[in-house]
Design a binder for these strands. Structure first.
Lengths: 166, 166
DNA sequence: CTGGATCCCCTTGGATACTG
DNA sequence: CAGTATCCAAGGGGATCCAG
C-alpha cells in the first residue's frame, strides 16, 4: 500500500506560545488539519473530479473518459481518498458488468462551492499574476545582464530588482 | 536548475467542445491557470509564509525562526515564487549586515483573505471529515474481515462495506 | 467494467556546504 | 545575515499487467 494512513509531522503541536490570534491560529495549530484538505483539493485530479461530480453522478469509466489524461490508477486513488474524506459517495450496483456510481455528498458539494470562490479569485487576478511574473522575469534578466557586465557603475542597491525601479 | 520556467502539460487547450458551462469552464480550460495558484498556495510552506507576512513585514531569518521546520532552501524558493507571482514584495537594505524585508503585497493580502474562507470551512468541517475517515476505515476493516471469512452471505449492495452494516 | 499490484520516472523537499 | 548550489531520500504519478 502506498498511502493508507498518513502522518503529518512538523508543526502540529508546536504552537509554543498559543495566543488568541486569528492568523496564528490557523498557520500553526490548525494547519495540520487544514493541510489534509488543502493537499486533497490541490492534488492534481481531486478538483476535476469534484467539479465533474458536482454536475451529476458519474461512473468510473465515465470520469476516466471525461478527464482525459488521468490514469485509472490515479482516478481510483483520488476517488478512494475523496470517499474516505466523506466528499464523494460510492455506490456499487451488483450487476453482471460491474457498475459503480460516484456522486458528491452534501459535504463535497459544500466544499466545492467554497473552492469556487478561490477559483473565481484566481481567474479574476490571473492577469495581474501573469504580469507580475513577466515583470519579475524581466528584472531577473536585467540583473543577470548587469552582473555579466560589471562596468557602468549603476547603483548596486538591490538584489533582484532595484528598489527605486518601481 | 530545478525550477525556473515550469510547464503545464495536459488539459490546457484541449477543451474540445467548449460549452458555456460554469463548471466545465474552470475544470478544463481555466484549470491550467487555476492550477498555478492552487499549486502555489497548496505547497508545503507558501500558506504559512503568507499568513505570517499578513501580520507584519518580516525578515528572512525571522521567518525561518518563526516557521521552524522549514529549510532555508525551501524558504528561499517559496519566497521567490511568491515574489514572482506578485504576492510578496522583497526589499533589500544595502547595509553592512545584509537585511531583507518581505511583506505582503495588496494582491497577496487579498489572496490571503480569500484563502481564509477555505481555511475556515476546513476548520468547521474538520470533525465531519475526521468522522468520515474513521467510518471509512471501519468499513474497510470490516470488509477485509468479511473477505477473510467467506461465510455469512451478507447482501453486497453498496459501498466498500456492506451497506446494511450501518 | 472496476479496480488492485507492480515497475519506474520525475518532482518535491530536506540536509549540508559554500559565497557575498 | 541572506541566500545559492549540490547531493540525496521519499512520494506523486504514469504505464502496464492482471484479477474479480
Amino acid at each position: 500500500m502506498e498511502d493508507g494512513t498518513f502522518e503529518s509531522p512538523g508543526n502540529c503541536g508546536d504552537t509554543g506560545t498559543d495566543q488568541g490570534f486569528d492568523v496564528t491560529n490557523w498557520d500553526t495549530r490548525a494547519d495540520c488539519e487544514v493541510r489534509q484538505i488543502l493537499d486533497r483539493i490541490a492534488d492534481k485530479w481531486s478538483l476535476l473530479v469534484i467539479a465533474l461530480l458536482d454536475r451529476r453522478s458519474m461512473r468510473f469509466t465515465e470520469l476516466r473518459r471525461e478527464i482525459d489524461g488521468i490514469s485509472q490508477r490515479m482516478l481510483a486513488r483520488t476517488l478512494r481518498h475523496l470517499e474516505r474524506d466523506g466528499l464523494v459517495k460510492r455506490t456499487v450496483h451488483p450487476v453482471v458488468p460491474p457498475r459503480v456510481d460516484y456522486e458528491l455528498t452534501p459535504l463535497g458539494a459544500d466544499l466545492h462551492s467554497t473552492i469556487k470562490a478561490l477559483v473565481t479569485w484566481t481567474e479574476e487576478h490571473q492577469p495581474q499574476i501573469a504580469a507580475a511574473r513577466t515583470a519579475y522575469d524581466a528584472r531577473v534578466s536585467a540583473e543577470a545582464a548587469e552582473t555579466a557586465r560589471p562596468e557602468a557603475g549603476s547603483v548596486p542597491v538591490s538584489g533582484r530588482g532595484s528598489g527605486s525601479s518601481r
